[in-house]
Simulated assay, not measured.
Amino acid sequence: MSPPPRQFSEAPLPGFEPVRTRRRAGPEPHQVAHRKRLRARFMQGGAEAMPDYELLELVLFRAIPRRDVKPLAKQLLMEFGDFNAVLAAPSARLTALPGVGESVIQELRIVAAAAERMARARVLDRAVIASWDALLHYCRTCMAHRETEQFRVLYLDRKNILIADEQQASGTVDHVPVYPREVVKRGLELSASALILVHNHPSGDPTPSEADILVTRQIVDAAEVLGLTVHDHLVIGKGREFSFRAEGYL
């Protein structure tokens, strides 16, 4: 006859603790509900009715999935001023703020790149003169909130269609080196017929400096010798821009 089966006690052995499964911490229920409500409002009414901090929250949701991001969104806006300035903020200044890591910066850069690409699509391969408002929107999107000066040249063909948008130089908060010969030389390489010069003033005031006026004159003179036309020089500030053509400088 077979012996009865052995019985094992469920009590832990002396000196050993039972292994307990640790549940992964997730967002609090009120955070989940808040995120759902915010996303629903965005899908129903779009971004127009949302303040900047709520739109920024939507961006931060992906970067920080398990934390209330409203305080961080408001801190970013307090530090940089508005939604666009947050997107354009330098990485070094962003990471100096508590709670901002690589994932946050990555999400901000993705949104900024998408905005620039959409604005650029409205002017590339189109007659720029007939799409002037779209061109200004593109320049503001790319340059208005930069913290250093950037000088770009838009090269146009005989029909004033934009064939290239190139950054010629970047500089400091109040200076950017520009070489008229290189600007014109590149126009010849692209078989361009006309140029539009664009640079930004990080101070926010688009009033041109004496150096801006001088380098514009040098580029115009060099371009004329080679049969290229300079349609305008735009200085992009925060909220407004200065047109050399409209103000009688060209």
Rank of each mutant, 00 (worst) to 15 (best):
S2V: 13
P4Q: 05
F8M: 11
F8L: 15
V19W: 10
V19A: 13
V19G: 00
R24C: 08
P27F: 01
E28A: 15
H34N: 09
R35H: 04
L38T: 02
R39S: 11
Q44G: 07
G45S: 08
E54M: 06
L55S: 10
L55M: 12
L55H: 06
A63D: 03
A63V: 01
P65Y: 06
R66V: 12
F80H: 02
G81I: 02
G81C: 01
D82N: 10
A85M: 01
A85V: 02
A92C: 06
T95G: 05
G99D: 07
I105N: 03
I105E: 10
I105T: 05
R109F: 03
A112W: 09
A115M: 14
V123K: 05
L124F: 15
R126K: 15
V128L: 15
D133V: 09
Y138W: 11
Y138C: 14
A144C: 10
A144S: 15
A144Q: 15
F151M: 07
V153R: 07
V153T: 12
K159G: 15
D165E: 10
A169I: 07
A169M: 07
T172N: 07
D174S: 12
V178H: 03
E182C: 06
V184H: 02
K185F: 11
S191W: 09
A194N: 05
L197H: 01
P202M: 01
P208W: 07
S209V: 01
I213R: 15
V220C: 11
L226M: 11
G227A: 06
D232N: 12
V235I: 14
I236S: 05
G237H: 02
K238T: 10
F242T: 05
F242H: 11
Y249M: 13
L250K: 09
L250G: 11
